[in-house]
Design a protein around this nucleic acid. Structure first.
Length: 570
RNA sequence: GCCCCCGUAGCGCAACUGGAUAGCGUAGCGGACUUCGAAUCCGUCGGUUGCAGGUUCAAAUCCUGCCGGGGGCACCA
């Protein structure tokens, strides 16, 4: 079940009015602008929605905007949801919704239940959201939390917007970080067995390395010490990454983040049988054919006119004393985007990257175009970095130093909801101060509880009404809903399809937190102004209980989209 | 030096992507619980949207140049 946002329905009315006005000769012929702008009014005096379209038409029509607007009004088709439309200086067309129609919509919202707000923006297209994709070299840290929450919420919103969505975690298991993990475990393992450290390379110091090494001692004994180090390392790498991924999956599950698939970088270099060519080699051959590959200094480079430098390294045999050729990140990107858009046939691929990767964006697009793929099918969500604060001081973290706060620890302390909400409150474009003191605080200073409290309060009212002997689920006579606070709440309930359209279309999941907060505020205002359970006026009581249930349903829905709980008690 | 993001009320941020009188939260001050949950609500104070130009009927939003903050420019990932 999907719904058409009100502003789109209004835009359609305007479109038909503009056509009719031209057909009737009230306006000269011109092309109707697309998209046709319709905006929520900012001031009550402007009605509910307004369109500035006539302001822009003044030039082509060669008439004053207000005159154009006045010429359009008589041609607006009648619609049950519009009570009034008028032309206002300097040339806006303002719409006021019918209050009777608004009140009646409460039943529609309630009937739609969890489907309320769904729109058909995606038209069933398949989109993959790939996110987190942290190197599998240790536990998930708070550093990845913003990525996880943005990606997961975006996926939920796209799903509500009519896309078929898959969530994917890309496992970087072919690079030097994977090797470093293996070396770390191997060296610690050797140390535990009092053997001389075999590999003099940099290692991770974290306690989880020791845990894995102990586990390895228990299961394998001294076996790996007797093997050729590189052979042992390859086996340990595979094992260690699998171990880490188990914890990664569990850590993210704590935050209510789940993936549909886990794609391994290594697979792009692997072959199923002897004599076969890996996907990477196939794509490399195609790029070479297209003239995008140059050999220089004994290495392989990718070149493309869109790049701001001559060439980007794709493979070098002399990077590390490693039996395998170890290509760079860009190399697997070439195979991966092909894998997404062609082999697996997604219509769109969305990458969620931290701002520290912004330099990689042009390369990704270049290597997409170079393979003949439409770059419009690829989007990169770049979110700015998170600054962790504790006691007003910045907390620095790094896996290399072994000093970091794990996501697991924080979730265990405060639960997923405050983390998710805080990570969503700002646009992806601004750096986020994440206050560890505030997020653990269960008080009204913590904004997450405001929205959940609104839901809880409704649940409390419904409980109270039931105690009074009222049949809470009885459909009320909605024509009794006329109070400004009732109507304001209803207007907000009806805005959800627009919010989902906006959040999905502009890839801006922060609109959900704004909407949830506004919705909560309007419920509180309704609660203040309108006594819901009034034994002396049962018809009005049932009407208001119906509205309260609808508000509860929509709050639950928007919290669900954000991956948060909608508690009945707090 | 080049690239990306940001600069809006004391502080933290919105502004539906160029529209009307720039909003919300916090902090400050003053109010509202014998009445459906006060984790709430109401009032009040607070603005030359960093600066200077430009484009437009219309600029917080687009362009140029400065200033300030953050991030990135590896044979790392």
């Amino acid at each position: 079940m999907t719904f058409i946002p009100l502003r789109e329905r209004l835009a359609e009315l305007l479109r038909r009015a503009l056509q009719a006005a031209q057909a009737a000769g009230a306006l000269p012929p011109f092309e109707i602008p697309e998209p046709l702008p319709v905006e929520p009014a900012r001031h009550a005096a402007h009605g509910d929605y307004g369109s500035p379209v006539c302001l822009g038409l003044a030039r082509v029509v060669r008439r004053a905007p207000l005159q154009i607007a006045q010429a359009v009004i008589p041609h607006l088709p009648a619609a049950d949801f519009v009570a009034h439309a008028e032309a206002v200086a300097p040339g806006y067309i303002n719409f006021t919704l019918s209050e009777a129609w608004l009140a009646a919509q409460v039943a529609e919202v309630l009937a739609a239940g969890e489907a309320w707000g769904n729109v058909d923006l995606g038209k069933g297209k398949r989109v993959q959201v790939e996110f987190v994709s942290a190197n599998p070299t240790g536990p998930i840290t708070i550093g990845s939390a913003r990525n996880a929450v943005i990606g997961d919420t975006l996926a939920s919103v796209l799903s509500a917007a009519g896309y078929r969505v898959e969530r994917e975690y890309y496992v970087n298991d072919a690079g030097s970080k994977a090797r470093k993990l293996a070396v770390s475990v191997f060296n610690k393992y050797a140390e535990l067995l009092a053997a001389p450290v075999a590999l003099n390379e940099e290692t991770y110091p974290g306690a989880y390395i020791t845990t894995m090494a102990e586990s390895l001692v228990a299961s394998a004994g001294r076996r790996y010490l007797e093997q050729e180090p590189e052979t042992a390392l390859r086996e340990i790498m595979r094992w260690a990454i699998a171990q880490v991924l188990v914890t990664v999956e569990a850590d993210l599950a704590c935050l209510r983040v789940h993936f549909d698939s886990w794609r391994h970088e290594r697979d792009f270099y692997a072959t199923a049988a002897a004599g076969e060519v890996s996907l990477f080699e196939q794509r490399l051959a195609v790029l070479r054919e297209a003239g995008n590959i140059v050999e220089k200094d004994g290495a392989t480079w990718f070149t493309h006119p869109d790049l701001d430098k001559d060439a980007v390294l794709i493979r070098s045999a002399q990077v590390i004393p490693n039996p395998e050729d170890r290509p760079t990140y860009l190399a697997s990107d070439a195979a991966y985007v092909w894998d997404k858009l062609v082999l697996r046939g997604f219509d769109r691929a969305i990458y969620v990257w931290g701002a520290d990767h912004h330099g990689d964006v042009p390369r990704l697009f270049a290597i997409t175009k170079a393979q003949g793929l439409d770059p419009e099918r690829v989007s990169v969500i770049l979110y700015q970095m998170v600054t962790l604060l504790r006691g007003g001081e910045e907390v620095r973290m790094s896996k290399s130093s072994g000093e970091f706060i794990t996501l697991r620890d924080l979730v265990d302390e405060v639960g997923p909801d405050p983390i998710r909400f805080m990570m969503l409150t700002r646009t992806v474009d601004v750096t986020l101060d994440f206050d560890l003191d505030l997020v653990v605080e269960q008080s009204d200073r913590n904004p997450v509880f405001y929205v959940q409290y609104a839901h809880t309060r409704i649940a409390g009212v419904l409980r109270k009404a039931a105690e009074l002997g009222l049949a809470v689920d009885t459909p009320g006579d909605l024509t009794l809903l006329k109070h400004p606070s009732e109507l304001a709440l209803i207007r907000k309930l009806l805005a959800l399809p627009e919010v989902i359209t906006l959040a999905a279309g502009a890839v801006a999941p922060h609109h959900l937190t704004l909407y949830a907060t506004e919705l909560g505020a309007l419920f509180h205002a309704f609660y203040r102004d309108c006594r819901i359970a009034d034994p002396d006026d049962l018809p009005l009581t049932y009407a208001r209980l119906t509205l309260a249930r609808a508000a509860k349903s929509v709050l639950a829905r928007v919290l669900q989209l954000m991956g948060m709980d909608a508690p009945d008690r707090m």
